[in-house]
Design a protein around this nucleic acid. Structure first.
Lengths: 331, 331
DNA sequence: TAATTTTATGGTATCGTTACCATATGCTAA
DNA sequence: TTAGCATATGGTAACGATACCATAAAATTA
């Protein structure tokens, strides 16, 4: 652990005042090239490293941004939101302080308090799935932006996926491939905007093709229950007038859907077309044939949220970020 | 944005000296109950919040720990390592500064420099898959611990999964279910310790059951290539003396393996037993039947790494963390 | 009772940086 | 020539906390 030098040491070595060193450090004007170079040399020679605590104390700007999420761990998506925010942050010389809060709102309040103590200049709150959130009052003490969620009062800027357009594209892909009976597997609780938006997009695409909505093709199921998903698909295929297209509300459930389709002796995409949602690479690329899916804009939402913090407009923008379709071999 | 009060304000309001306020803040002895209470009241009334930048500057202990990873985004596992480190950190009143560095070692050096400037008291370096890493010299300027990787010189403490025991258990589960011909699907580059350890565990389990190793049952394949994985499984099943057990080096590839088994008209677990590795919930819980898999100790490695930082022993411990088998319905 | 230790308290220097003020050039415009 | 301004430079007071030192009363011991 080597000793740390200060600007005083640098100033002495370069034979200038500390102010000049500070000016070099912060790219301020009014420093002659000659002295600037002497300072830079001294810093190089002593392997000088700024003490940012001191800088922060003096300038009361830490460049720290808090990143709070309700459950960073439960889903792999979180990472992309963090990464988006992080990339945007480092482009502007900011850092993320990542803290996860469990579901109790008390814990969220603590997490925010924790960040405020650390002098963050802003907070990003990210949700693991698209839904409305309730936030404690202390969040209003610094600029805040939301990713993958929104607040009912709509008084904070937020970025959410455009579920509607994503679902519309997914359904349309099946329609364009000639499918006319299209099942939609929904995910039950929590009641989320993801679910409502995807259902609406599905309905709208059918309507554009003049196909009446058939409630019997629209089934609710649970995430992570392969038996149930398998059975549901089987039952749908056993109908009198069975669907030939499946639009599943997430990629994970398509695994069992694929299995049920194979089990019925049908082939994808020749007999049946399947489209998923989330574009979760671990799943979509390991299914045979590889799954066409809708990409959720996690990365983009993270980046958008960070950029909102710095903009700091008076009126809180509610952004819907596009969800492109990633075509593979399942339609 | 409300004004921030300082200990001076608190001291004035409670009619004590600033030192007394500081003592209350840091739970130091020699403060009468009466004054302590007055200080606490004043803090409550003014909604006082400590300025940690100032505290850090004076005490030169930031409680910040850097968390560097080579590619935080590419795999969902990362999150569990972060979470483990985070939970351990917050238990000790520390925070994680998460930065991701791309593969170039230059970028790792920059990331570390970045953290050193921010006065981190230690650094955790986490890899996305178990392998040896090369780290720049500046890492030695603060206590460092490695998670899911190790350094060739072995001069830094590291935690890695015990791949051997995990693979041994996976193979043994198949053997106990009566399978005697067991295929092992490996993942090709990057050449990792994960691969070698799993192969060794597989071989050891066979040996314990007096079954000779058959190289023709041990096939290399690529991650995220469903067609190839499907074909490999198909070819294995078409052998003269086909395997009835499959030990796959990760869960993802079992999706196509399942499909090939179904396609051959065979059933899991009645005809064929399958075990995966990673215990990736999105996959294992969505396969029918749900997949038995080996749990990688990501969370534990993260927590272990953090705790090493504080212990700071002279000799760098190389820990192998256990990989338990999670039994489900595929064997 | 006197000497010593424990408890209680506050003043002030200090951490490493930047903001502000003071000063001194050289150059241009009246 | 004399303002007036842009350029260049350094000294020093903050920023908000803690560490150290000094002091005094209360409790303990000799």
């Amino acid at each position: 652990m080597s000793h740390n030098y200060t600007i005083k040491d640098i100033a002495a070595r370069a034979n200038v005042g500390t102010t000049t060193v500070s000016r070099v450090l912060n790219d301020h004007p009014y420093v002659s090239d000659e002295k600037r170079q002497r300072v830079l040399n001294a810093m190089e020679e002593l392997n000088y490293r700024q003490n940012l605590s001191a800088k922060w104390l003096r300038s009361s700007n830490t460049g720290l941004v808090g990143f709070v999420t309700d459950a960073v761990a439960t889903t792999p998506y979180a990472v992309d939101i963090i990464r988006g925010a992080q990339d945007a942050a480092s482009e502007q010389d900011h850092v993320l302080l990542v803290v996860s809060a469990s579901d109790t709102s008390n814990s969220i309040e603590d997490a925010i308090e924790f960040l405020l103590e650390r002098q963050v200049v802003g907070i990003i709150y990210a949700a693991m799935f698209h839904h409305a959130v309730d936030l404690p009052d202390n969040i209003y003490q610094v600029p805040t932006a939301l990713a993958n969620c929104y607040i009912k009062q709509r008084d904070l800027p937020s970025a959410v996926p455009d579920e509607f357009i994503g679902a519309y594209r997914a359904t349309r892909a099946l329609l364009e491939a000639g499918h006319r009976r299209i099942a939609h597997l929904q995910v039950v609780p929590p009641a989320s905007d993801a679910r409502e938006g995807r259902l609406a997009g599905y309905k709208a695409a059918l309507e554009a093709y003049n196909i009446p909505f058939d409630a019997s093709l629209c089934i609710e199921t649970f995430d992570h229950r392969s038996d149930e998903n398998f059975n549901i698909t089987q039952q749908l295929l056993a109908m009198d007038n069975p669907p030939t297209g499946f639009f599943c509300a997430n990629d994970r459930m398509t695994i069992a859907t694929y299995q049920a389709i194979m089990h019925a002796g049908l082939s994808i995409p020749d007999d049946i077309g399947v489209v998923g949602f989330d574009n979760q690479l671990d799943v979509v690329q390991n299914l045979k044939p590889q799954l066409t899916s809708v990409q959720l804009p996690h990365y983009e939402m993270g980046a958008w949220a960070f950029n909102q913090l710095l903009i700091n407009t008076s009126e809180p923008i509610q952004a819907k970020i596009d969800c492109p379709l990633v075509a593979r071999a399942s339609v």
